[in-house]
C-alpha cells in the first residue's frame, strides 16, 4: 500500500509521502512538517500535551497513526490565530495567566477549543475542570486555565449570538 496521504493542515491541503507507517500524527507534525507547537509530553495518551483537532474533534495526536488519517482536516496551535489576531482562547490564556512554562499550553488551548465546540460544559466551572482534565499542567496553572476557558466560552457564545 503506498504511504501517500493527503491532509488539510491549518487550512492548507498537503500531500504527504510517509516514509514509515509507524509515524504518528504528532511525530509527523513535529519532526517532518516543522509544526513544533504541538508538544510531546508522554507519547502515551496520558498528558494531553499533543492535543490537536482532527475533523473538529480534540484527540491525542500521539496515539493516532498518520496513515489512518488520510483526508483528515487538522487544526494545530499554529493555525488558531488569524494573523496577528489571537483566538479568544489564546487571549484569555494570556489574560488569566493560564500558563507558566508554556509546554502544556498548546495542548491546553486546543483542548479548550475542542471543549467549547463540544458544547457540554458551558460556563460551569466544575464541568470545565472535568472537561479539561485530560491535559496535565505540572506547573499548576489550573486555576487560570479554568478561568480562561470560561471567559473564552462566554466570549465565543456572545459572538455567536451576535452573528445569529
Amino acid at each position: 500500500m503506498p504511504l501517500s496521504i493527503t491532509l488539510t493542515i491549518n487550512g492548507e491541503p498537503r500531500r504527504i509521502d510517509l516514509d514509515d507507517p509507524r509515524v504518528t500524527l504528532l511525530d509527523l507534525l513535529r519532526e517532518r512538517l516543522d509544526l513544533t507547537g504541538t508538544k510531546k509530553g508522554c507519547d502515551r495518551g496520558q498528558c494531553g500535551a499533543c492535543t490537536i483537532l482532527v475533523d473538529g474533534r480534540r484527540i491525542n495526536s500521539c496515539l493516532a497513526l498518520a496513515i489512518s488519517h488520510d483526508g483528515a482536516e487538522i487544526l494545530t496551535i499554529e493555525g488558531l490565530a488569524r494573523g496577528d489576531a489571537l483566538h479568544p482562547v489564546q487571549q484569555a490564556f494570556i489574560a488569566h495567566d493560564a500558563l507558566q512554562c508554556g509546554y502544556c499550553t498548546p495542548g491546553q488551548i486546543m483542548s479548550a477549543v475542542g471543549l467549547i465546540g463540544e458544547g457540554q460544559a458551558g460556563d460551569d466551572p466544575e464541568r470545565v475542570r472535568e472537561g479539561m482534565s485530560g491535559n496535565l499542567c505540572r506547573c499548576g496553572a489550573y486555576a487560570g486555565i479554568t478561568e480562561a476557558v470560561i471567559e473564552a466560552q462566554r466570549a465565543l457564545t456572545s459572538d455567536a449570538e451576535k452573528a445569529a
Binding site: 494531553g48 474533534r57 480534540r58 484527540i59 491525542n60 496515539l63 493516532a64 463540544e118 472537561g131 491535559n135
Partner: peptide, 9 residues
C-alpha cells in the same frame, strides 16, 4: 473513563 481526547477517538 479516560479523558475527553481519548473518548473522542
Amino acid at each position: 473513563g479516560a479523558s475527553a481526547q481519548l473518548r473522542n477517538a
